[in-house]
Design a protein around this nucleic acid. Structure first.
Lengths: 203, 203
DNA sequence: GTCTATAAATTGATAGAC
DNA sequence: GTCTATCAATTTATAGAC
């Protein structure tokens, strides 16, 4: 594979990522991806055989390179549940804010192709059971109040993802269309979400 | 307009709602809508001129009839912030659970057509400012801890909507694919979300 | 109003020259 | 490897009979 190959392949992938993530799979157009990459439509099929395959490549990269590795690290390494919540919220709000179209992209994929993402997560080695056990232990030790640990986890993820997915609705309704205000709001959220949860579960 | 007209028009609308909400606008097929409605494809164009117009009708109904009125009532009438949180969570988790494809449908629309939903909300008369003021007052009175009321509102909405939007991911990861478990989890959430928030903000 | 048949348009995919 | 030109398939939309 020559250097030119790599360059083109990467250009395509980057363009495809932009278009697929913004438009969704069905509404994305191969022509637009080609235009965005600054190359010809036929080249898309030369490198990736079909729209399906191209989409799969994009999805795989988003999940396996962008989202999962860091989360894996946090969930794996952080023993203290309060610190875990903080780190998780900080990373998640940050990465999603930097890639604001990912939530829609992922939620769409979840609904169109239910098993792909969950399999990726399950195969990624992310130790969900361990994390839940860690929360359970904190409850047994009287550090946090007793509740279903999954409720806490779901709350955490919800609060990180949704405000970005719903950006275009929140912006006019809560922020008078001020992007500065909204940005400040999200920046604060990195700690706010964690504090909100800890405030709720600590004893 | 005869009775038959109404019947057919309604059949179409109902079918369109099912298909659009489940597939998204781009992936929805007029043929499938016609089949679902049990009528011919040409009739779709006879009643609604185009796919676009049909979609708009569906979206308008979902928002203006299904989502907004009840929320308006709750936000308008309920003075006590704790009760407001409870009622809001109870209704929202319930309606979304009954119509699990709505979150994706709405989020998609938010991103494709940013102003439509927010305008609908802004024009619905939902008293956002009043609600925020009510939270502010509760803070001033020392009933809840001081924070940005919008953070609380966003948390509330996030926790109601996301778990249903992400159903297909949560199901295998947190519930071993047990729909019964997941259903129980969501049923509990109607009160759990409200309690979680109140626990966090009360003094 | 409702249908069948068909046109028109869009778009993913391929052939073939360079 | 990259392009232009074209095909083939899908899908929205319309014409016209009943």
């Amino acid at each position: 594979m020559t250097e030119q190959d790599l360059k083109t392949e990467e250009k395509i992938l980057e363009a495809a990522m932009t278009v697929f993530i913004q438009k969704g799979k069905a509404a994305a157009r191969m022509q637009e991806i080609a235009d965005t990459a600054g190359i010809n439509k036929a080249l898309l099929h030369y490198y990736y055989r079909s729209k399906d395959k191209l989409y799969e490549s994009v999805f795989s990269i988003v999940i396996k390179q962008l989202l999962l590795p860091k989360i894996f690290k946090i969930l794996q390494e952080e023993e203290d549940v309060f610190a875990l919540i903080h780190q998780f919220a900080d990373f998640y709000v940050g990465v999603i804010n930097k890639n604001p179209f990912i939530p829609l992209f992922v939620i769409e994929e979840i609904n169109k192709n239910p098993n792909r993402l969950s399999n990726a997560v399950l195969n990624s080695g992310i130790p969900i059971e361990q994390v839940i056990a860690r929360f359970q232990k904190a409850m047994d030790e009287g550090k946090i109040r007793k509740t279903d640990p999954r409720q806490i986890l779901v709350n955490l993820i919800s609060m990180c993802i949704f405000p970005v997915a719903a950006r275009n609705m929140l912006l006019p309704i809560l922020f008078n269309n001020s992007k500065t205000e909204y940005k400040k709001f999200l920046e604060l959220r990195k700690t706010e979400v964690a504090e909100f949860i800890i405030q709720s579960i600590k004893i």
